[in-house]
Design a protein around this nucleic acid. Structure first.
Lengths: 217, 217
DNA sequence: CACTGTGAACCCGTTCACAGCA
DNA sequence: TGCTGTGAACGGGTTCACAGTG
């Protein structure tokens, strides 16, 4: 395998391939061409091939890719081979929603601890977990070897929570608060920001209003 | 103003500038340089200036940008001048979370109708809204002039819901289901996919494991 | 023959560096 | 002088086009 740099955006596309491959496998398909996989995902065929070759050579000229083998390969590139333990901080509506999110469990992402700083919530249960005092975070993260922190607190306390997670020894953060956080270089942070997303929607809406519906595009 | 094409990613950065500007304004700051705004947002100063000039010339050489004027400008580019009506489909945990999401209200995004197809939920209330049968969607969207649809149903029914929203005359969709949807060209779709985000985290985690913590990055 | 893997061209977003202005 | 606005260089991601292969 040659060493070429992988464009970070390619990782997101792998997730799309994975979903398509899972669907195809369920439908009983054995082999698939880059061409067809492109059709499934709306990504250009050359792009599909390029993305896959960043990580090795999985296809056979004249045949295509073996669905189940490729699915496994992609899953492994995405690090889905092993379970990951996660801690969720901020058990509001969003936190509660995520704590029971099926799509996470199916992928091996397990939320094993819930934290909040609201005395009224501490001790209450969500599913089969008990909400703990945020002060317990260092202890629990250490004891349970939790790797990923989910931030679902308001923007105003996101940085503080992030600092606590980092201090507790977490390796990666999925930040769902509508603000950016700063962390040391070694920490992996991915932001999921529905407010920014909605502002994007809003911009394109008003841009299309500005041209008065004259064009189609 | 000259006509240069705006890179779509720039829109997301405008949201970041807006937040920084709101904060600065609260702190009573009057003027700000691209340099300092860059510091606030972690974006390169030349980048900040470039992004802003896509939409006009807002700064004064030797002085910088007037905070409150620029904030207004950016908000207007993001189409935040007027209220937007939204309908939410899928009142599970995530839907419930979003239906009371402060960050949306503050920006003028108003969820004014909730829909579900679960007979047990229909008629129940969330905040001051009553959950309606999804069959009512065309009527309500038409009557209330709803522009944006929020999809918070499971992946398996996202496409169906999307089709219904489009048929009802919605203009844009914020899709929070963990799957892509296909829509006619004229419809604006933005995806917020925490599963893909988590897989990204997972990938970078296992990539950093592979190099055994030998480098610091 | 059908399809992969990839060099090379292309395109677009980013950043530099500086002319020009208050 | 201090900063913006922008031409131009750069760099990285995308796509083309085809040589190579089972």
């Amino acid at each position: 395998m040659k060493w070429v740099k992988v464009p970070p955006i390619a990782i997101g596309r792998l997730s799309e391939y994975l979903r398509a491959l899972e669907r195809l496998e369920r439908e009983g398909r054995k082999a698939i061409s880059s061409w067809r996989l492109a059709g499934e995902t709306g990504i250009n065929p050359a792009h599909v091939r390029r993305d896959l070759t960043y990580f090795g050579q999985f296809g056979r000229p004249g045949v295509g890719y073996e669905v189940s083998k490729l699915r496994e390969k992609v899953a492994s590139i995405l690090g889905l081979g092993k379970e990951r333990k996660m801690a969720l901080v901020g058990v509001g509506n969003l936190g509660t929603a995520l704590s029971s999110y099926k799509a996470f469990k199916e992928r091996g992402f397990r939320i094993i601890a819930l934290f909040d700083n609201d005395g009224k919530k501490i001790g209450k249960r969500r599913g089969n977990l008990t909400i703990q005092d945020i002060k317990e975070l260092p202890r629990v993260v250490g004891r349970e070897n939790i790797e990923i922190g989910l931030i679902t607190v308001p923007a105003s306390s996101a940085q503080e929570v992030s600092d606590a997670l980092v201090a507790a020894g977490i390796k990666a953060i999925l930040n769902l608060a509508p603000t950016r956080i700063s962390v040391p270089e070694r920490i992996i942070v991915i932001n999921v920001d529905s407010t920014v997303a909605l502002e994007r929607v809003s911009h394109f809406l008003s841009a299309s209003e500005r041209k008065q519906g004259s064009h189609r595009r």
